[in-house]
Design a protein around this nucleic acid. Sequence first.
DNA 1: CACCGCTTTGGTAGCGCTACCATACATGCT
DNA 2: AGCATGTATGGTAGCGCTACCAAAGCGGTG
Lengths: 359, 359
Amino acid sequence: MTEELFKPRRARAAHAQGKRATLKDVADRAGVGQITASRALREPGKVSPALRARVLEAVEALGYVANQVASGLASGASRVVPVLIPTLAHAVYVPFLRGVHDELDRHGYEVLLGTTDYLEATEAKLVSTLLGWFPAGLLLAGVDHAPPTRLRLQQAVAAGLPVVEFMDLAEAPLDMNVGFSHPAVGAAVAAYFADRGCRHIAYAGTQASHDHRSTRRLQGFRAELAARGLPEHYALRSEEPFSMALGGRLLAELLQRHPQVEAVFFANDDLAAGAVLEAQRRGLRLPAQLAVMGFNDLEIAAAMHPSISSVAVDQYGMGQRAAALLLERLAGGAPAATRLDTGFRIVERATTAGPGAGA
Amino acid sequence: MTEELFKPRRARAAHAQGKRATLKDVADRAGVGQITASRALREPGKVSPALRARVLEAVEALGYVANQVASGLASGASRVVPVLIPTLAHAVYVPFLRGVHDELDRHGYEVLLGTTDYLEATEAKLVSTLLGWFPAGLLLAGVDHAPPTRLRLQQAVAAGLPVVEFMDLAEAPLDMNVGFSHPAVGAAVAAYFADRGCRHIAYAGTQASHDHRSTRRLQGFRAELAARGLPEHYALRSEEPFSMALGGRLLAELLQRHPQVEAVFFANDDLAAGAVLEAQRRGLRLPAQLAVMGFNDLEIAAAMHPSISSVAVDQYGMGQRAAALLLERLAGGAPAATRLDTGFRIVERATTAGPGAGA
DNA sequence: CACCGCTTTGGTAGCGCTACCATACATGCT
DNA sequence: AGCATGTATGGTAGCGCTACCAAAGCGGTG
């Protein structure tokens, strides 16, 4: 009659885990308690060498792989870190992701990838779902979040979840923050052009209503021009997503509206590259008649002919630092800094070379 | 004395989940059984509209978010799909990842990112760990796996885990397979050059011992040359990872060893771009004196001056299809095909334009 | 009006692991 | 020797959810 008690009550979801060895199997084979087997794997120092060896032998023999899900449920913590970036369609976020991944991987954490498409609603949904994974931490692109999302994140932070916002600097970060100042970039580029004698300096970008960082660059840009008494109304922003072709169209429209424009700061290198091609079609001499600056310093900026000046940002390093900050917090210590400015650098190339916008 | 029984026995890991509402809270508030609440969320059709509404109201009011970990443990299945690619350092794998992510995201699955760095040992470790997450499926770059890894994967497949190998075609895939034939690419490029009158046709690549796909392209390349009675020994493969600079060095070495070389097929566009710059430094006319073909058709191939011919592969589509195949299987139906050839296309540009390797 | 089969709802056990506590034993001290 | 102290090991409960089964409700049928 005890037979009844021993027969498995249900067939598992017949998944990959079908017949996998459990920790109990390992413990039985090694002739130790289950908890000792668990310790031998997680805290080797607390188990005598003899037992530890037996456990490891059993693990090897049975091909045991820890069930992360059960572990996560029991401990209320996992080794998964979701990373939310706007999109994979743009090369910019990839080095960042790589930096994060390299650093987390080295420490045994997994990266769960999420893309928001610059939409707050998508971000909100992702944050909800991903919090359901008991993540070890959370990495979020940008510092702008819908109020309900922000509230939920604040609660999570208060409960001890390490969160790093990156790509931008916030006045009041949710928790930790690694990035650079977009207004400062805009101001620096405006100053760069102005210092070279340009007077009619324009900004061209995309996804006006969603890309808050581009908006902030434009703000810094305008403020600097205004401070110098230069016209600051040459700005054109499309709602379309970026592409090289769009860069050409933006330049065409800009020149039609404001033929006097001498220099343009594009929201990214793809746009700038498209604009350079359009300028060449129109027979404009670069930078003599038109100076062009991109943003992000992608490979294409250096590869184009003429090569395109751009603003370089250390995306990979930013990713590494963001992950490192998170790891420090997880390791228990308060991190050295909770707000890191990774800066930027104007890379001067052919499309802006020389004083006076060329010539 | 029953007091004892009710006091919580331990403080949870004080993590993000600290005070989060559980399914039981939702059920209590809605005045239904816990299981009914669960069903209302997962199988709405099986619950009466009235109760469903009450449950949803409670979810809303409490800000309930399902605990994915507990759900995964109880059901033996999760909505996570690990994707293993060689590296994020190369732009090639990103569109693939994007295709996968877009498709899976649309269906409510999460992507867990892993990179192998072309190392079988790393792949083995990742496969082990990731299997511990009760993944819904598995996406693996390449069809070459270390024997123990292969064995473990076969067991998982036998147990019902859907696995898709991509980027390459296998004689005997583990399960499903989406990719294109690398030998066919090599042969097609060899034929392309030969048809244009080249006789001394070389191959240049990197990471000789790790990049099996590059090796197979070389094999197809050589076979085609041999079949045409052309010399097939002009091959140079470095162990270094690819970079533009390395492309230049490879070309220099190749020309030193075999000055008669007229055409080179590079293992990727970055190498080709570096080689083009080196050729320009040497004053070689492209393609008259040297024809160059890249691989992957990255943006840089079109942006360079002269523009570089390349072999285009629909990485994004490959990712989408790989994910779609996996989803079909998960949906229960046997997928239409388990082996999909996504093909390739030679994109002719300035570095190979015209007959006779230029004229 | 009793009976059947269907749908809707709930109880319960357990997924595999880890936190907490208890126990056994070795060590060093008075 | 007798006791406190520390170290190594094990038992047990429970993490939050879902699979299985049982029971209740309900309308239709002969």
